[in-house]
Amino acid sequence: MRHVVPVLTVLGVIVAIWYAAAIGMNARWERDQAARAGETITWAEIVPRTMSQERPILPAPHQVGAGLWDGIAGQAVTSRRSLVWHGWVTLSATLAGFGVGTAAGMLLAVGIVHSRVMDQSVMPWAVASQTVPILAIAPMVIVVLASLGVKGLLPKAVISAWLSFFPVLVGMVAGLRSPDGMQLDLMRSWNASPSHVFWRLRLPSSLPWLFASLKVAIAAALVGTIVGELPAGATQGLGARLLSGSYYGQTVQIWAALFTAAILAAALVMLLGAVERLTLRRMGLAR
């Protein structure tokens, strides 16, 4: 409970800065309106108006809160205006991409650790794949797959997997290589086979590394899915919600979608964190 005060203080400072910025950024529009009407306007009049504009440059926190509440609780879950519905569209593609990306990353890591040839041939391509800007690749993936008749969840999951396999690969390679020389010598002294070394030593040792990289990967998977929802005029998902908001100048809608994405990411990372704590504690790796 000692943490409540500092946490609330930080939150309060952020909200205060946000309100100040909203007033500053939205005041100009109010002044222009007044000038156009030939009136003069005082600060005392400007301040309350900056917090209730229809299309503010920066919506005030309570406007975003209201938008968020309306999107989550104010609509039927099946409605196109419901953030729960859009959130689920994004979440399902994220989880699919994360699953595929994690599996691919783990398999490649196992190959890389056991084969020098794979280490030298796969790793450079894995690194190169991540240096390509995802914003440039995503539309191509969507368009190419759409021309093949693949639409909906799958193309987004591909982009999401693209982003999420890499942290898993890097973390898993480090984890599988983490047993020290003494541990490997012990295995050698027992004449253990490579599969014994893998299942009984390397894999359990790699789990702390795996969990750390899974947290990075799931956040990346969510970003990948949202990026995959932006091109080609998608109509479903948080990315589509962001896009339509920016078309029509609905800044409140944009911010509400952004916060939904952030809450979703935080929830996923926390969920992984809970699984991590549980697993590592049971294994005696966390104290």
Binding site: W190, N191, L201, M283
Partner: peptide, 30 residues
Amino acid sequence: ARAYGYVFQAPGLYPWRSIAGNISLPLEIM
């Protein structure tokens, strides 16, 4: 032929296995 047992300076026990589990490890492998 598993002619020797080797003991290092550090115990090198697996934290995720109990003491019995650690002793069991070479036996399982063999």
